[in-house]
Design a protein around this nucleic acid. Structure first.
Lengths: 144, 144
DNA sequence: TTATTTTTGCAACAGAGTTGCATTTTTATT
DNA sequence: AATAAAAATGCAACTCTGTTGCAAAAATAA
């Protein structure tokens, strides 16, 4: 993780790499993502920053991070949208998650299992795959 | 598929098996699911039935079908919720999709690939899996 | 056919997400 | 360091999605 100072520097660097202005909102939201071990949804961000930002700003910040490939969406079966920070292999124009997402039925947390690879899936004839999303639900390490 | 008459009989039987009243709404919505080769979302149902039902009725009907294991949800990365009819192996209390879902980036249709099985995924120590959802995106048979 | 149960539709509401525009903050320039 | 240009923010107002309570209507049971 590193000290608070180091994290702050990493965030600033990340924003500059993505050609984004370094603003309080963006730094605070990125800090939240880096501190949290799971995926966040819009409402998590509103509560955990203590409502310090306007809803609209949060929506726009998340959209910007998505566009720049800083965060990615995780599929859900409800109307919520969950986001997690991307690992190094993601870029602005070629975005793929090569890992499995795990949703705990007990604590509700969604985590990225970065070590778990997605196996090859053989589709029927005529189908071409670009991206494969895997969401496993069950009971996580901490809730067991 | 069978004739219109046969489909209607199958639907009536299905509803009775699930201990549900046979109503115009339910029959029409189930017909829609059976005719369509892809997954439907709430708005599809509203448009394709020609707004003949109240929004609330459609929401409640979908929830009822879900509860009875007649349809299942498909994960998405947006706020939409997609539904598809279940195959025989699904029951009211033990519901699992054992197949892969395919979302076409060209036509937007989501289909159930009933023949394509979900591979075994080996999770890190301490994680217990109950259900695995796989959504592949790419280009489908008809759009290719 | 009638009584009971279930389903439907309406009204009203709550929440999620979006858009335009003026103000503020950040970055670039001198 | 001061100023100009560009970008981001916050507010108001709006749309779209989904929910709840309740009375009317339809379906099932008797």
């Amino acid at each position: 993780m590193g000290t608070k100072q180091q994290i702050s520097e990493r965030i600033t660097a990340l924003l500059k790499e993505s050609k984004l202005s370094v603003t309080e909102t963006r730094v605070k939201i990125l800090e939240l993502f880096m501190k949290s071990n799971g995926a966040l949804e819009h409402s998590d961000i509103e509560t955990q920053t203590g409502q310090s930002f306007d809803r609209v700003t949060v929506y726009r910040t998340l959209q910007t991070f998505l566009d720049k490939g800083i965060i990615h969406k995780i599929p859900t079966t409800d109307t919520s949208v969950r986001y997690a920070v991307c690992k190094s292999e993601c870029s602005e124009h070629d975005h793929h998650d090569h890992h499995v997402h795990f949703k705990c039925e007990s604590c509700g947390t969604t985590t990225c299992l970065d070590e778990t690879n997605i196996p090859e899936i053989s589709l029927p004839k005529g189908y071409a795959a670009h991206n494969v999303e895997v969401v496993v639900s069950g009971v996580c390490k901490t809730c067991k």
